[in-house]
């Protein structure tokens, strides 16, 4: 595999290989020296057109633990603010002989577009409302380590599915791994065309929770508020927020996930986020292992 642009790039074998490799990487993280020489001499650029401290730090940590040289390129205060196009930035990276580009971009498809101009591997770290494949991988990794196997697992993804790159990547990857996905949200936040997705759709969270092994809450961005997707934050929270009452509807073993950053009191109650069933902090830690695995598999074989 040359690039990781979409979760659909991974078949069952490839996805399983990433998760297994991540397990090995995680084992190393408990050692005193958390560093492997695998990517020594390779250069990875974190090309971030969108502010995302957590994702950038996660990728940076992953690359550094593999001994790669890491260059952080943030659109703010750079040539991009002076009007440089994605193509010219790409040609610059190409001229410098970059081995891998981790790209976060507000435009859906920007990593695909970038891949035509650079020879190095492109790793999609979130593009617009399209995909975020490493998030789906770390979510799958988290579910596997908490619940055993993914085959037959019942996963509910709740919230703003329409604008969520996390939801798109998760639906594709979980299907590949044999899980059953139910999307839950107000009809306004479920995309037209969802009927083609390998997932079922429900508008009623209460009815879905009892048959759920893992519930994944999506962030609802504040800017959606003025666009008539739902009447008010309060009503949203009442209908689709995960509070204590709803948690009791879940089976005993079920876990509660959130890709972060979360809005406490909106889509998730604070005590739910902090409960032992919540994997939110674990997901962050697993993110580093999964991204190490992705970088290793994309760049290590060269």
């Amino acid at each position: 595999m040359k690039h990781l642009l979409s979760a659909a790039d991974l078949d069952l074998d490839a996805a399983t290989l990433v998760l297994d490799t991540a397990t090995e990487m995680a084992a190393m993280a408990s050692r005193e020296v958390k560093k492997l020489p695998t990517l020594r001499g390779r250069t990875v650029v974190n090309l971030f057109y969108e502010d995302s401290t957590r994702t950038r730090i996660s990728f940076e940590t992953a690359a550094k633990r593999l001994s790669a040289d890491v260059i952080n390129f943030s659109a703010k205060g750079s040539s991009v603010e002076k009007g440089e196009s994605l193509k010219d930035t790409a040609l610059t990276l190409q001229a410098m002989g970059i081995d891998g580009v981790v790209i976060r971009h507000p435009a859906s498809g920007a990593p695909n577009t970038l891949s035509q101009w650079v020879d190095g591997s492109i790793l999609n770290a979130g593009d617009g409302t399209h995909e975020h494949p490493t998030q789906a991988l770390l979510d799958a990794y988290t579910m596997r380590s908490r619940l055993g196997q993914l085959k037959g697992l019942r996963v509910a993804i709740v919230g703003d599915v329409l604008h969520s790159r996390v939801a798109r990547s998760n639906v594709l990857l979980l299907r590949t791994l044999g899980a059953e996905v139910t999307l839950v949200g107000p009809p306004t936040l479920v995309p037209v065309g969802v009927e083609d997705w390998p997932a079922t759709v429900s508008y009623d969270l209460d009815s879905v929770l009892p048959g759920t092994d893992a519930v994944m809450m999506l962030r609802v961005q504040r800017e959606r508020m003025g666009q008539a997707y739902f009447p008010s934050a309060r009503e949203y929270s009442r209908r689709y927020g995960l509070d204590n009452r709803r948690v009791k509807l879940l089976p005993e073993h079920a876990i509660i996930m959130h890709p972060g950053p979360m809005i406490r009191g909106m889509e998730i109650a604070p005590e739910v986020a902090d409960s032992p069933r919540s994997t939110i902090v674990e997901q962050v830690a697993n993110g580093v292992s999964v991204r190490m695995a992705c970088l290793y598999l994309l760049l290590g074989g060269k």
Binding site: G128, R165, G193
Partner: peptide
């Protein structure tokens, strides 16, 4: 950005 339907949903482009 694109016709609203199966493709816009998949590609994450506004329909």
């Amino acid at each position: 950005q694109v016709h609203e339907g199966v493709q816009s949903a998949k590609l994450g482009l506004t329909g």
